[in-house]
């Protein structure tokens, strides 16, 4: 109990003192995971919509792939993204490995199936007669897609929350492709693991509290937006 209390007190002091290192790690975490979530939304929402509305050969396979992808182990993603980004790998020439961009790529790979599956479910829940109604009103393919995406906006915000929650909390991929380099690729999860390895449990607890606060803050913001739209 004492350890937990010390950790909480340390977290409070680190935040109150505006410790530059902690602020830097927190800001990088927010930036990297936020960007990865945005990328996954840009990939996952159109893909989920196409899977929800389209009827084409291989669709069921793609749906099962998206659902399977929701549980992708971050370490496996980290390994494969590393293989592609290593100097000897196919994209080695870009020198991306051990940069924040490498973490964004790995996290986007983790979050995209989550956003795709949530989008698919949200759009499939819309009454099919709405599609008929939109066609009867003269909607073209894009107009119909956009109208349905707007109609599924509550579910899509859940997709964003799940995607962000999935990537902000993962450590394996960030560690493998980012390398936990101080001042460059150190994020809250990798910093927490490092402090635990060093035996600095109070700092680790402090970082974990900040991570939880960050994850909750973003989710609370999105929930407020979701419920506000719902009540309008």
């Amino acid at each position: 109990m004492e350890l937990i209390w010390e950790g909480l007190v340390k977290a409070f002091y680190l935040l109150m003192a505006l410790d530059p290192e902690v602020l830097e790690v927190t800001w990088l975490t927010l930036k990297v995971s936020g960007t990865a979530t945005l990328v996954s939304v840009l990939i996952g929402v159109p893909l989920g919509a196409v899977l929800a509305l389209g009827r084409f050969p291989g669709r069921n396979f793609l749906v099962s792939l998206a659902n399977f992808g929701m549980g992708l182990p971050p370490v496996v993603v980290g390994l494969w993204v590393s293989i592609f980004l290593w100097r000897s790998g196919p994209f080695g020439a870009f020198n991306i490995i051990y940069t924040p961009l490498a973490i964004i790529i790995a996290q986007a790979v983790i979050a995209s199936p989550i956003v795709t599956s949530f989008t698919l479910a949200a759009i499939q829940q819309i009454n099919p007669r709405i599609r008929l109604q939109l066609l009867a009103l003269g909607a073209n393919r894009m107009q119909m897609l956009w109208s349905l995406v707007k109609e599924a906006r509550l579910g899509l915000l859940a997709a964003v929350m799940a995607g962000f929650g999935g990537v902000v909390s993962e450590v394996g991929a960030s560690m493998m492709v980012g390398g936990n380099i101080k001042g460059m690729t150190r994020v809250l999860t990798t910093a927490t693991v490092m402090e635990v390895n060093k035996g600095n449990f109070d700092v680790a607890i402090a970082l974990s509290v900040i991570l939880l606060g960050l994850a909750y803050g973003v989710t609370a913001l999105l929930t407020t937006l979701q419920q506000w739209r719902n009540q309008r």
Partner: peptide, 17 residues
């Protein structure tokens, strides 16, 4: 699409967005 845009339909149970 152009054809549908020359016509309009009112469904039995109106589906409102």
């Amino acid at each position: 699409l152009n054809l549908r845009r020359r016509m309009a339909m009112v469904f039995q149970k109106p589906m409102m967005l």
